[in-house]
Each structure stands twice: as structure tokens, then as C-alpha cells.
Design a protein around this nucleic acid. Structure first.
Lengths: 206, 206
DNA sequence: AAAGAAAACGTGGTCTGACCACCTGGTAAA
DNA sequence: TTTACCAGGTGGTCAGACCACGTTTTCTTT
């Protein structure tokens, strides 16, 4: 009765315990986790169950296994998972639309947030960077999302970005000037202007 | 010899073949796929390898396994991928603030979206419901998120809601009238008014 | 003593066969 | 007809055995 919580799928339980273990031991990206055999022993489970958990995490891009060496924690930025999902799931037209829409919403949220709490200096540097460098769309908005100083929404945005890219619909390529315009709008602190710039950049109707 | 293409991870190869098989046989959500033993035979692989592939797909929410019955294709739209990722990402304590902030942002996004594409009838019914029933905060916004007709953002919102609740900071309880006000603001189609109502309901400063 | 080659060890990758727990459907008993 | 039961199929798990590949250690050879 102590564990009606999760006596169901052992491998899910192992995933959970792995997470706990990683947290407790303060393991970070690049660190090595115990071998399958040792985990099997420590967690009191069969090696195959441990492997099922590891495979799942691997497919999500959370860990990386190297034959002959071991299993390592990865810098979670799902890329192969996205590819898999895209070929598997995203046939659904509606889901595509949702991804696009949501990405735009989140990006606007980030712009709003940056406007609310970034200082002029930061935005000024962003503008300078926008002027002086060449970059891809992802790079630019990655900065925006970072400046929003909200790690969670940054993560969400990253996932959405990956989904978005996997859709392969780079139909509209913003010009460099449009990025600069957006940065300048941020600098002026006028949200309406920011919104207008963003819509132009994304080629959206009002 | 026929497939040196991907001698890397067998389970990934199996995932691929499963995808092909599903596509070729025209299997849809709810359909049953062959048993692990049969797959093992047909794909010329050990059952454990087949299982590793299935577990990965399960964690992605692409299939569902029922003991004693079999393995079934799932309606993959908004799987638990985000869920899983967040449990890994949200370990950070500092993330609390982010959760709150992000939840608010997403809620406003939903309100905005509802405003953009919901018809008057829907909103009218929402208002009626808001007046005639009692409900919890989650229930109300669950409806909002649904009306936004964006499954993905609904999922994201659900996760944020769960995390929000787990933070245990139900410091402010909106009144019923505030929900009704919000619904009425939606009905009027004035976003500024909606925003003001929302902020009041959430006890936020402008 | 230093450098290189060979063996030993540890690790993930895979397969096999064996149980268990559970569900389903058919059959026998009431 | 209804009920009870049981056999077969299915996923869940485990243990042990190899293999392939890196790393480390050991032992030659120079």
C-alpha cells in the first residue's frame, strides 16, 4: 500500500529515480552516470528495465550513450526527437498550425517581457549586435528569449523553435533591417510599435 | 548487407521500420499493432530490442501498451513530451517565479486568441456558464484555453497549471464576479478591457 | 628507461529463454 | 441461458550469455 503510486511501469519509475539521482548528485551536462549494470543493481531492477528507461531518455535527447565508454548527460536541446516527431506526428495540419501560432504567441510574450523588465542598456546592446552582426532568425530570437529572463519560457520557446524548423516552411525570410527595426522599437519602449515591427518581420497581417 | 544504412542503434532502426509498417498498413489511432513477439520475428530482432523501440515511442506518447491486450497506436496530439521535459528542466528553484509569470502570459495569450477567433455565440455560452455555475480557477481557464482552439498551447497551459498548483501559493482567490466580468469583457471584444479584467482577477498591478 | 604492442577489463548492444500478471474468449458446468 | 472456469495470448520483468568497442594496464621490444 505504500506504493500504489507507481507500480505500473517499472521503466517509468526508473526514469523518475534517475532524475532524482541526477539532481541529488548534482550531475550536469557532460557528466557520466553509472553503468547499466550498476544502476540495475542499485535500483534493484533488471538490466533490461534500466535499458528501457535509458532508451526513452536517449530518444528525448536527455542522455547520450557511447559504446565502450558509458552513458552521459546531455545538454537538453532535443533535436533528434524533434525530427522523429516531425516525421511521425506532424502530418496533422492542425498541429502544424498550432505550432506556428504558439511560437508567434510566445515570441510576442518574450518581447513584452523584455520591454517590461529589461534596462535600456541591454536593449541598446541588442540593437548594436543586431546592426553589426549577421545571424539567423533563431539566433536573434534566442537573444530575445534570454533577455526575457525567464528560463522556463525560454525552454518552451526552444522546443517550439525546433518543432517549427522541422516543419520546413521557411517561406518568409526577414530582412536585416526588420530585425534592427524591432530592436529600435524595443529601445523606444513602445509596445504597439514593437508589435507592429514584429508582425512585419513575421509577415503577419494585423 | 542490404542495410548498412543504419547499423547504429538497432532500436532506432526498429522505430523507423515501425513507422514504415504503420504507414504501409494504413494503421490509425486506436489500431492494434502486432505483438512484441511477432514484431521480433518479422523484423528479425530480439524481443528486447523491439521493446526498447516501443518504450521510446510510448514515452513520446505515440503508442499505448495495455498488459494482456497488446500495443495500440495513440492519438498523438500534444503528447506528454513537454511534460517529461519540464520535469527535467524545472528542477531549478528559481523557476518558481518563471512558472507564475509564464502561466500568466499563456493565459493572456489564450484570452487574446479567443478574442481573435471565437464567435460571439461561444463567448456568450461561456458567460452564461460563468454565471450559472460554480467552478474552480482551473476549470474556468481550462475552458478559455479550449476555446483558443490550439491544442498545443492548451497542453502547455495544463502543465503550467499543474506546476503552479504544486507551488502551493493560492494566495489570491478571485471572486465569481471577476470571472463574469472577464467573460463580459471578452463578449465586448475589447482587448484592453479583457486585459484589465484579467489583471484584476489575478490581483496584478498594471 | 622509453616506446610500442598485446592482453585484460569495463561498457553499451543484442539475443534467448524463462517466469509472472493480466486480459480475452471459448468451453464446460449450473 | 447464465455462470464459472480455464487455456492461450500479450505485455512486464529478469537473468545470463555473447558481441563490439574503448580504455587501461601489462608486457614485451627496442
Amino acid at each position: 500500500m505504500t506504493q500504489q503510486e507507481s507500480p505500473r511501469k517499472l521503466y517509468l519509475e526508473i526514469v523518475k529515480q534517475l532524475r532524482t539521482m541526477i539532481e541529488k548528485d548534482g550531475l550536469k551536462a557532460g557528466d557520466k552516470i553509472p553503468s547499466e549494470r550498476e544502476l540495475s543493481e542499485r535500483l534493484n531492477a533488471g538490466r533490461s528495465s534500466v535499458r528501457e528507461a535509458l532508451r526513452a531518455l536517449e530518444l528525448l535527447g536527455l542522455i547520450e550513450t557511447r559504446r565502450g565508454e558509458g552513458t552521459f548527460i546531455r545538454d537538453f536541446r532535443g533535436n533528434q526527437l524533434v525530427q522523429l516527431l516531425s516525421t511521425f506526428i506532424l502530418q496533422d495540419e492542425k498541429a502544424k498550425k498550432d505550432v506556428i501560432e504558439t511560437k508567434y504567441l510566445i515570441e510576442i510574450d518574450c518581447l513584452q517581457t523584455v520591454l517590461d523588465k529589461s534596462d535600456k542598456g541591454q536593449i541598446g546592446r541588442l540593437k548594436q549586435w543586431a546592426i553589426e552582426h549577421t545571424y539567423e532568425d533563431g539566433e536573434f530570437f534566442s537573444r530575445i528569449a534570454e533577455f526575457a529572463d525567464n528560463h522556463l519560457i525560454f525552454r518552451i520557446w526552444e522546443i517550439l523553435k525546433d518543432y517549427y524548423h522541422s516543419l520546413d516552411l521557411h517561406d518568409y525570410q526577414p530582412t536585416k533591417q526588420q530585425y534592427i527595426d524591432l530592436a529600435e522599437a524595443l529601445e523606444k519602449g513602445d509596445f504597439e510599435l514593437v508589435l507592429a515591427s514584429y508582425r512585419k518581420l513575421r509577415n503577419l497581417s494585423a
